[in-house]
Nucleic acid binder design. Structure first.
Lengths: 224, 224
DNA sequence: GCCTGTGAACCTTTTCACAGCA
DNA sequence: TGCTGTGAAAAGGTTCACAGGC
């Protein structure tokens, strides 16, 4: 089984694990017992060498000549990603985006439940969004504590992003998903991921402008 | 001025240009005439060496001992990103997410106007969302043509993503932003960027689980 | 024969460090 | 002196290609 055991998993690999996870769920629903790196690659939209390399960082979970046991690999990846446990989330900002996120049934369901929705605008506080009621900012620290919230989602305008981040962090949050189009500064023990719609569109426009394509874009193979 | 002239801009650099763009807008609003790579780095949340390298791919637009002229650099980056022109977009999927995106005033405004909202559900068609009316799928090809749409935004459930992508592409779209949690296959002359909330949360959960932080996360420097 | 696991080659990206110009 | 522009070094990520077990 080579040197394997406890090597540090590269960031690029971590970023692809959710992709494999989703692909394996697919396999499972189609009652496949095993998958090859080729099949998994196709489902995940990457190439087979990458799949094998990535999975090898987790351990030697495949069988030569056969492939990977779907259930088993699914279990291992879930464990690595922490999807066997619950991650209560709070959304700050109950505007269009915040409300949509609160209602969104696409959080891979597993684990990431929205348990709080916060906004400071007095016309928002008290409103109902799905099963949540909008609560005022000053309740944040208590909320995080009482509901064991571990992830904060920023869905405010850019100008509010930094103060909101500060508030989340001083409430004890150490993982932040930022939808506001602004860079936020955080201490080194806090993770931030950002999702920026304008940025994505601008990248598309760059390539469209030149008749080029972004990425390997080798995600081909459709007949037509 | 070195070898510069028409070197190909690396993808990693392209992905950061929107960040610089936004930072420069900030500078402009604060009436700064010039900005150094250090300042720009701080605003964009990257390091100064990267800023200089990135900007050097565009040309030698800085002045040694001084920095970069804000207006001028802003103009150059706008041009590179194609923000001097209009990019009409269509959103497919008028659920929570699609509706939120249609209303979202955070597309960096410039250029990316949503000019169509499409959904196939008969209870959605005809509804009004902001200033848009939901139109049925079969109007897509005409719409793309008549309104010169260049970017398609997929905001459907995962199961619809591939057929919707196919429809967009056969309508002539060559840039796709995919919010559905599914991999879509496209021919090599089409760009796809994806935004996946579940993926982002799972990456956060991976690092939180281990008490680690993703990325360089050196975006520090806040007093406290 | 089939498919994994993995060194080694290769390519991209980041960082360093400093020459060169204002 | 200050800050850019850029070769060169280092790090990180991807792909190749094949040994090795099923």
């Amino acid at each position: 089984m080579g040197h394997n055991g406890r090597r540090r998993i590269p960031e690029a690999t971590v970023a692809r694990l959710p992709l494999y996870y989703r692909s394996l769920i697919d396999c499972n629903e189609r009652d496949l017992a095993t998958v090859s790196s080729d099949q998994l690659a196709e489902l995940a939209g990457v190439n087979a060498a990458k799949v094998r390399k990535d999975l090898s960082y987790l351990g030697s979970y495949g069988t030569r000549g056969v492939g990977y046991d779907v259930e088993y690999l699914l279990h291992e990846i879930s464990r690595e990603l922490g999807l066997t446990q619950d991650w209560p989330c709070v959304i700050v900002g109950a505007g269009n985006l915040g409300a949509a996120l609160a209602n969104y049934r696409g959080f891979g369901a597993r684990g990431f439940r929205i348990v709080g929705l916060v906004d400071d605008a007095s016309d928002k506080v008290g409103q109902t969004v799905g099963e949540l009621t909008v609560e005022p900012m000053h309740t944040l620290a208590n909320m995080v504590n009482e509901r064991s919230i571990s992830i904060g989602i920023i869905a405010t305008p850019a100008s509010a992003a930094q103060p909101v981040a500060d508030a989340l962090i001083s409430a004890g949050i150490r993982s932040v998903l930022n939808f506001a189009p602004a860079v936020i500064s955080v201490p080194p023990n806090v993770s931030v991921r950002k999702v920026d719609l304008a940025t994505e569109l601008q990248i598309l426009s760059f390539y469209q402008l030149r008749g080029l394509t972004s990425g390997p874009a080798l995600v081909v193979d459709r007949p037509a």
